Computed example of a mutant assay.
Amino acid sequence: MRESDHVSAQQKKRVEAILEKKIAVLQSWAREGVPWMLTADAKLARDTDGHPMLVHYPRDIRSFACWDGSLYTASDIEKNPGLSELKRFARSTLVQKHNLDNHTRVKHLLREICLKASRQLEELDFGGRIRKLEREIESLKATIVRQESEIDIFRTEADEERQRRVKSEKRLDRIRKYAREKIEQLERDRATGSTPTSSANVVSLRKQMHTRRRPQ
């Protein structure tokens, strides 16, 4: 492997690790809600109208790529340690071919998070009960769409794995067929004395046939 390929592979692994950490935070927030912002003395931070505020959360793919731990206070990070591990990556990362599934996954999660955050804020508005229910329905729909998308991805991966297994089984069958033919030829040659064939060759081929197992 060339040095440039080795560096590229290492960089790809680093970006994948960063991406997975960000997705894990989004999944947590989709389930439990976006955390409330805290002041330096660990109290709820409020806007100029006195309303509690949520911590920063990405709203689109661009802000997701730029999302990192520097956007949070020490109090926020103390209560949510995973925020300190968030790091930026190039905006082009998610449009690369090997990341297209993650692009779809993140897009659905971001929509779900935005709806979740809106619902959390509206819960403070006692006059907005109808809007709250409407948002909840929209949030649940977004969750269903995201889950269906992930199921499609898992099905695709399962199909690809099944195809790889079938190819491996066919290759194993070819090897066994070749081994059987070779054994038969060696035994015929030995019986007719047409070539000095060692019995060890036959035994070796037989062992290969019986010790190779089909992939599970």
Results as ranks from 00 to 15, higher is better:
P81D: 12
T211E: 13
R171L: 09
R88K: 12
D41M: 07
E32F: 13
S118I: 02
I153T: 04
K182W: 03
N201P: 02
G33P: 08
D159T: 10
R31L: 13
R31G: 07
L140Q: 11
Q147V: 11
D49H: 15
M209I: 10
V106S: 00
S139K: 10
F64M: 08
R155S: 08
Q208D: 03
V34E: 00
T192Y: 02
T156A: 09
T48Y: 09
P52F: 03
R206Y: 01
R180E: 15
A142L: 07
R129T: 13
T73F: 01
S8V: 06
E20N: 02
W29G: 07
I137G: 11
E138C: 13
T195C: 09
K170W: 02
V145W: 03
R212M: 09
S92H: 05
R206Q: 05
E150I: 14
L124V: 03
L94W: 00
T48K: 12
L140E: 13
R214W: 03
N99R: 04
D60Q: 03
D76P: 04
I153W: 04
P215L: 07
S92L: 10
L124S: 13
R176S: 02
R88C: 08
T104S: 07
K170E: 09
E136K: 11
L71A: 12
K22C: 04
S194N: 11
N99S: 01
R14V: 12
T39F: 06
T195E: 03
L121D: 04
M37H: 11
V202S: 03
R180T: 15
K182N: 02
E32S: 11
E122Y: 15
S92T: 12
R46Q: 09
T211P: 05
K177Q: 04
G127Y: 01
E20R: 00
R88N: 05
S199R: 14
R146E: 11
E169T: 02
E138L: 15
E123W: 14
L121I: 05
Y72W: 13
